[in-house]
Amino acid sequence: MEFLFWSLVAIIATGVVWKGSGLLESASERLSAWYNLPEIVQGAIVVAVGSSFPELSTVVISTLVHGEFELGVAAIVGSALFNIMVIPAVCGLVSQKQLRANRDLVYKEAQFYMIAVAVLTLTFAFAAIYNPVNNGGPAILGEMTRWLVLMPLALYALYVFVQYQDTMDHTGTVDTRGIRPGKEWLKMALSLLIIVAGVEGLVRAAINFGDILGTPSFLWGITVVAAGTSIPDAFVSVRAARNDRGVASIANVLGSNTFDLLVCIPVGVLVAGTAVVNFSVAAPMMAVLTFATVALFLMMRTHMMLTRVESVVLLGLYVFFVVWICLETFAVVDWVPTLPPPDSG
Rank of each mutant, 00 (worst) to 15 (best):
G50C: 09
E310I: 09
V174R: 13
V41A: 07
D343P: 09
T307N: 03
L105Y: 04
Q96P: 08
N131K: 06
A206K: 00
T171R: 10
I12Q: 04
E184N: 13
V49D: 03
V119D: 04
F320N: 00
F126Q: 09
I250H: 07
V281T: 15
L289A: 11
V313E: 10
S249I: 07
Y156F: 15
P341N: 08
G15F: 11
V117K: 01
A189R: 08
V94S: 07
A116E: 03
I45W: 12
C326E: 04
S217H: 12
A118S: 15
P152F: 08
I207F: 05
V322D: 09
G50H: 07
A282R: 00
A275D: 02
E39I: 00
I207C: 06
L289H: 10
D334H: 12
T121V: 10
V90P: 02
E68V: 07
L8Q: 11
V41P: 09
L190H: 04
T215F: 13
A227R: 10
T258D: 01
F279H: 05
P340F: 14
L150C: 11
G246T: 09
V196W: 14
I222P: 03
A128D: 02
P181L: 01
A116T: 04
L81Q: 05
T58S: 15
V322T: 11
S21V: 10
A116L: 01
T167F: 00
G214Y: 09
F291N: 02
D334V: 01
K19S: 08
E29L: 15
F209G: 00
Y130D: 12
V271G: 00
M300Y: 14
I11G: 13
I194H: 01
V332K: 05
M286G: 08
P138W: 11
A272G: 12
V253P: 04
V106W: 03
E70H: 13
Q163F: 12
G72C: 10
D343R: 11
L317C: 12
W220M: 10
S256P: 07
H303M: 06
L298G: 03
A283N: 00
F124E: 05
L190Y: 06
F82Q: 07
T302D: 12
D104L: 13
T223R: 08
P88D: 04
I212Q: 12
A74H: 06
L339Q: 00
R204L: 03
A128C: 03
D211Y: 13
E55C: 06
G20T: 01
S95A: 15
M285A: 14
V332Q: 05
H303T: 06
Q42S: 13
L192Q: 10
A127D: 08
V333C: 09
G273Q: 11
L150D: 08
A33E: 15
M151T: 14
G268P: 05
T171E: 15
L148W: 09
E184H: 04
I207V: 13
P88L: 02
V288K: 02
S191H: 10
V336Y: 01
F320C: 06
A44V: 06
S7Y: 04
A287Q: 11
L190M: 14
T63R: 02
L71R: 05
L186F: 13
A295Q: 12
L71S: 02
L120S: 02
S217Y: 04
V133L: 10
D211V: 11
P88Y: 00
S79M: 05
L327R: 13
P138M: 09
A13P: 07
V149D: 03
T173R: 07
F297T: 07
A295R: 07
P341C: 09
G137P: 03
G228P: 09
P337N: 06
